[in-house]
């Protein structure tokens, strides 16, 4: 199955968001887009051009944007407030907590430029804690799609989902390999490639890194089961446990701090149900720095070689 995972041409996940919003603008009259002075970066110009009355330019005022989104949802609209992931979460955590999460508002927070792959802007903008923050909020759905096609499908699926949700995507051009016609099922893990020696659970940009790592490991006779966890909350526990029952060990991979993200979510399931060795591929409790994504990922332990090393390490612990 690994040879079927082919890059059909690099595209940014944020472009997938823009394409999803463009589609939603045509099919769902209740969808309202908000943006905090980052329209070009969020790729929603087509939505705005076709639905100017359903776009609310919010200026550099993220707290007020989240509050307005809560109010729009109260009136029956489906607001998609959007900005960079850092400003969409940590900066406005209490506004999200009280006005959206606790108030159970149907708001879809859409966040681009998450993680190290934001690149040159550096650590002020490279949030690596957002998955942890958002999954701690009761009732929040947390999604981190892996490529353009999946981000587009996830965006469209969110409009049909009722409840607060966080959609995390990124800046760089990245391999696009999932089907263009996919139906996105929130909360359902995606089997990318079956294997027998180790289960690799990955999310976001790191999914492609694990595919490349699995190809290298296959040449060494190691069989990896690749599972894409696009929805970190609610987590598809059944899929995790079914895979682990087969392989007996786990590697998790995420563009996030090792605390609070996908790795911890998987570890919670394992410790309560089926304890097996697990290795984390994640940022080791640090901030990032300026640089190109291809330079930053290996420097911070998120390279293809890091996935390979984690697999070999966990296999020894079996």
């Amino acid at each position: 199955m690994l040879d079927k995972l082919v890059d059909t041409g690099k595209k940014a996940t944020r472009d997938g968001y823009g394409a999803g919003m463009h589609e939603l603008g045509k099919v769902n009259p209740n969808v309202v887009a908000l943006c905090a002075d980052l329209v070009a970066s969020l790729k929603i110009q087509e939505f705005i051009d076709e639905n100017p009355e359903r776009f609310i330019q919010s200026g550099i005022s993220e707290a007020n944007m989240m509050g307005m989104a809560a109010g729009l949802a109260t009136g029956g609209k489906i607001p998609f407030p959007s900005t960079f992931a850092n400003f969409a979460t940590g900066r406005v955590y209490d506004q999200i907590r009280q006005s959206i999460a606790y108030s159970e508002k149907n708001v879809k927070i859409c966040a681009s430029h998450a993680g190290l792959t934001l690149g040159e802007d550096g650590a002020t903008h490279q949030i690596l804690e957002d998955i942890g923050m958002m999954r701690m909020l009761p009732g929040f759905t947390v999604i981190n799609p892996c490529d353009y096609n999946q981000t587009k499908a996830a965006t469209i699926a969110l409009a049909e989902h009722v409840g607060p949700a966080y959609l995390r995507f990124g800046r760089p051009s990245w391999p696009n390999f999932t089907p263009a016609d996919q139906k996105f099922e929130i909360g359902k893990a995606l089997m990318l490639s079956e294997g027998t020696d180790v289960s690799i659970f990955s999310t976001g940009h790191m999914v492609w890194q694990t595919i490349e790592a699995a190809r290298a490991l296959e040449k060494e006779g190691i069989s990896c089961e690749l599972i894409n966890i696009h929805t970190i909350k609610p987590l598809d526990e059944a899929a995790v446990l079914a895979s682990v029952a087969k392989t007996g060990c786990v590697v998790t991979a995420e563009e996030h701090n090792r605390y609070g993200g996908l790795g911890d979510a998987i570890a919670q399931v394992l410790t309560s149900n089926h304890p097996v060795p697990q290795e984390y591929v994640a940022v080791n409790d640090s901030f990032g720095e300026s640089g190109k994504p291809a330079e930053l990922l290996p420097k911070y332990g998120l390279g293809i070689d890091d996935v390979v090393a984690a697999v070999k390490k966990v296999l020894k612990r079996k």
Partner: peptide
């Protein structure tokens, strides 16, 4: 609350 009220007024 004022932000939420604005959102409701916009809706």
């Amino acid at each position: 609350g004022v932000s939420v009220a604005i959102g409701m007024a916009l809706s």
